[in-house]
Computed example of a mutant assay.
Amino acid sequence: MKESMDATYWNDRYAQGSTGWDLKEVSPPLKAYIDQLTDKDLKILIPGGGYSYEAQYLWGQGFHNVYVVDLSELALENLKERVPEIPKRQLIQCNFFELEDTFDLILEQTFFCALDPSLRDDYVKKMHELFEDDGTLAGLLFNFPLTEKGPPFGGSIEEYRARFSPYFNIKTMETAYNSVAPRAGNELFINLKKK
């Protein structure tokens, strides 16, 4: 892992407002996915959640078993200020790979593409471990050529299928139809079930 992408790196990005990935609202494809969920008891994780407008939206919709993990203390404090009702224990400041828990649903908001690409196989294995039985990994991956100038780092549907298919059944992996304009055509919506 690149040393520069530790907690200090991410806190500095937030402190400087260098957060070009931040939509300042729930991502439309994730909002549409959340809107069709009916089980308010789902235990939900948002890894690398940042300011996590998705967690704020989930909470507002009555999903109170939502957890956010991020390296950045500043990002988690921002979410806590916006949604003070979220228990502090559900805002976890740690390295995603050190998380020890299980979930029913994990929402991916381009966290995968923010990680050093050398960690991609580890990410897939860790995701598999974080589900009890037939959990769902749903959300967004970037769909543009892999670059060394990230984060975000890109990737392709071919790469994602090859990495995820040993561990997950791929229900959906297609270009998101409802991305925000700057990301149109560059986001893949995924819905994967643990094997």
Rank of each mutant, 00 (worst) to 15 (best):
G155H: 02
G150A: 07
L91C: 04
K126I: 08
Q109N: 13
Y160S: 00
K126C: 09
F96I: 04
Y160L: 06
E132V: 12
A162E: 13
E148R: 13
L146R: 03
L119C: 09
Q90C: 03
E100I: 08
D122M: 15
F164C: 01
F153A: 01
K149V: 07
P166E: 01
I157K: 15
L115S: 05
S156R: 04
F142C: 05
F96P: 02
L137R: 01
C94E: 14
V124M: 05
F164H: 02
F96Y: 13
S165E: 15
L107Y: 07
F153S: 05
I106K: 05
D134C: 12
T147A: 01
L141A: 01
G139A: 11
N143S: 15
F153M: 06
S165D: 14
D101Q: 12
L141C: 03
T136N: 03
F168G: 09
P151A: 09
R120Q: 11
L105S: 07
T136F: 06
K125I: 10
E148Y: 12
E148G: 14
F112P: 01
K149T: 13
G155T: 04
C113R: 04
N169L: 11
L115K: 05
G135I: 00
D134S: 15
L130H: 03
L91M: 11
K125R: 09
G150Y: 02
P117H: 06
L119Y: 13
P117C: 05
M127H: 06
Q109C: 12
D133N: 15
T136M: 11
K126G: 07
F103Y: 14
E148Q: 14
F103M: 06
E159N: 07
D101W: 02
Y167A: 08
F111G: 09
A114K: 01
L105F: 02
I157T: 15
F103A: 03
P151S: 09
D104S: 11
E158D: 12
N143L: 13
E158Q: 13
Q109E: 14
T136V: 14
D121V: 15
D116N: 13
I106Q: 01
L105T: 05
L140W: 06
F96Q: 05
L130W: 06
C113V: 12
R163N: 02
I92M: 02
D133F: 14
G150I: 04
V124K: 07
Y160G: 01
F168L: 10
P151W: 11
S156P: 04
G155C: 06
F112A: 08
L140N: 09
D122W: 12
T110R: 02
Q109L: 11
D122Y: 14
F153I: 04
F96E: 03
C94T: 14
S156V: 02
Y167V: 04
G135W: 00
N95R: 08
A162I: 04
I106H: 03
L146P: 00
L99D: 06
P151I: 08
F144S: 00
E108T: 08
S118Y: 10
Y123H: 14
P117S: 11
N169P: 00
G135Y: 00
T136I: 15
K126R: 11
R161C: 10
D116Q: 11
I106D: 03
L119K: 07
V124W: 09
A138E: 03
F111L: 06
A114F: 07
P145C: 04
L146W: 01
V124H: 08
F144D: 00
T102K: 11
F164E: 00
Q93F: 09
F112H: 03
